[in-house]
């Protein structure tokens, strides 16, 4: 055990790390926003939407939830260009994350909708609201409130899972750590720093989501 820890490379490479952090943060924030939006739309379609739409959404959800994220990413980045669809690494990474989170959050949000009592729907309808208006104004927020902790966890998982996008050379935090250790041969130090940054990002993201919850849900308890 004659290993001597050496963090002097940080002086030269902090800019690379910072850029990686920013890319990871951007992918997470944009990916989570779009992914959850897609998930809400799919949850509506699968539980309340027109009959013809349900099997289409169900197929999408099951396809994504039963295949590896890495393969989905490779398919988008390496597979789609064969059909003439070209994307940058970041675009491909973002698209893969949105599609992935969309499928998982669909099922989470759907659980929240199903946990909403029929009485809430009937109250909305009997006041003259359409089915969609009732979903939008009456059901959605309490449904999200019920599943917010689960949804928050899923968003954090997507943030951590975004490390995989370094495999298509999207220059996120993992890419930065790989790059630094390949230049400095300081694998232990590079990855421990990356680990700590991921940990900090995850804690920060959870707090951010808690804050969003406080804004979105004025009442802490809801039926």
């Amino acid at each position: 055990m004659g290993y001597v820890f050496d963090y002097s490379w940080l002086a030269d490479y902090w800019g690379v790390l910072l850029k990686g952090v920013l890319v990871t943060a951007e992918l997470t924030l944009v990916g989570a926003t779009l992914g959850v939006s897609l998930g809400v739309a799919c949850a509506w379609a699968r539980s309340l939407g027109p009959r013809w739409l349900k099997p289409i959404v169900a197929t999408y959800v099951e396809l994504i939830r039963n295949t590896p994220f890495l393969i989905q990413l490779f398919f988008i980045f390496f597979g789609l260009p064969s059909l003439g669809v070209q994307m940058s690494e970041i675009q491909a990474a973002l698209l893969a994350m949105v599609i992935n989170l969309g499928a998982y959050s669909c099922e989470i949000v759907r659980a929240g909708i199903q946990a909403t009592g029929q009485g809430q729907f009937e109250a909305g309808w009997s006041l003259g609201m359409t089915r969609f208006e009732t979903f939008r104004y009456v059901v959605l927020i309490p449904a999200l409130q019920k599943i917010w902790p689960a949804l928050s966890s899923q968003i954090v998982i997507v943030m951590l899972g975004s490390a995989v996008v370094s495999q298509i050379a999207a220059e996120d935090l993992s890419f930065a750590a790989n790059f630094i250790q390949s230049r400095t041969f300081r694998a232990f130090e590079s990855y421990i720093v990356a680990t700590l940054i991921y940990l900090a990002l995850a804690i920060l993201l959870r707090q951010l989501l808690r804050g969003v919850g406080f804004v979105l849900f004025p009442r802490r308890s809801g039926r």
């Binding site: 009592g117 809430q120 109250a123 003259g128 004025p218 308890s221 809801g222």
Partner: peptide
Amino acid sequence: HLKALRLKVGMIFQSFNLFPH
């Protein structure tokens, strides 16, 4: 048609069904 009808009759439920949020 349902909307037109429901604008003419209101309904009160046994379980209130207020919007909790």
